[in-house]
Design a protein around this nucleic acid. Structure first.
Length: 191
DNA sequence: TATGAGATCAACT
DNA sequence: GTTGATCTCATAC
């Protein structure tokens, strides 16, 4: 992992539909703990399932801000979910990070999760956030190009699969879920 | 293996 | 008062 290049600041200032698939295979670290992104979902402001659909509120204010930031929200009362804010046409959009392949800080992650099975450490938004120690207080609205975040560009283009998003009730048929093909670390198999 | 409920909180109606 | 971009554990085949 020594020679990976950090993502350029402008990476996120593009449509989520370009950014999301390009994040597959990139490496995300928080405080030196993390791994390779193997699964994401795109949320566009015209998407009824997106938090930003229906206008700005206190919760989603970060999505309306500059791109390249972390948007963290509480899901079902108990989980944190991590998003990367993008900027298509100056509107609120973001990419939900759904799963990582753990590569760095395995010990820290398994301690936080209380598990040892690598495939379960980060295979899902809530699990991922817990494994990386993500909380809204500490990470919401933070820039992704400065500590504690580190995002490294992928070194080669992996095989990308797309599919239907998970866990939502609106616009669930939109194929805006992207993943690393044949990865054992995705939260669910792609159909 | 598969299905179902509980946990727990902030935003929204 | 209800719902949700979820996960885990328990109970039932």
């Amino acid at each position: 992992m020594a020679k990976a290049q950090k993502l350029k600041p402008g990476f996120f200032a593009r449509s989520v539909h370009k950014v999301a698939p390009e994040l597959i295979g990139a490496t995300l670290l928080v405080d030196g703990v993390g791994g390779v992104i193997v699964e994401v979902e795109a949320y566009h402001h015209t998407d009824p399932a997106a938090h930003s659909f229906g206008g700005q509120t206190e919760r989603n204010a970060v999505m309306f801000g500059p791109p390249g930031r972390a948007y963290v929200y509480r899901s079902y009362g108990i989980h944190w979910c991590l998003n990367f804010v993008c900027e298509p046409e100056g509107s609120a959009s973001a990419v939900l990070i759904r799963a990582l392949e753990p590569t760095e800080g395995l010990a820290a992650m398994s301690r936080r999760r209380g598990l040892k099975d690598e495939r379960l450490l980060c295979s899902g938004p809530g699990r991922l956030a817990q494994a990386l120690g993500i909380t809204r207080d500490k990470h919401n609205g933070k820039r992704l190009d400065i500590a504690p975040f580190q995002v490294f560009a992928r070194e080669s283009v992996p095989e990308i699969t797309d599919g239907v998003r998970i866990g939502i009730s609106k616009a669930a048929e939109l194929p805006w879920r992207y993943g690393l093909k044949e990865s054992a670390f995705v939260s669910r198999k792609f159909v």
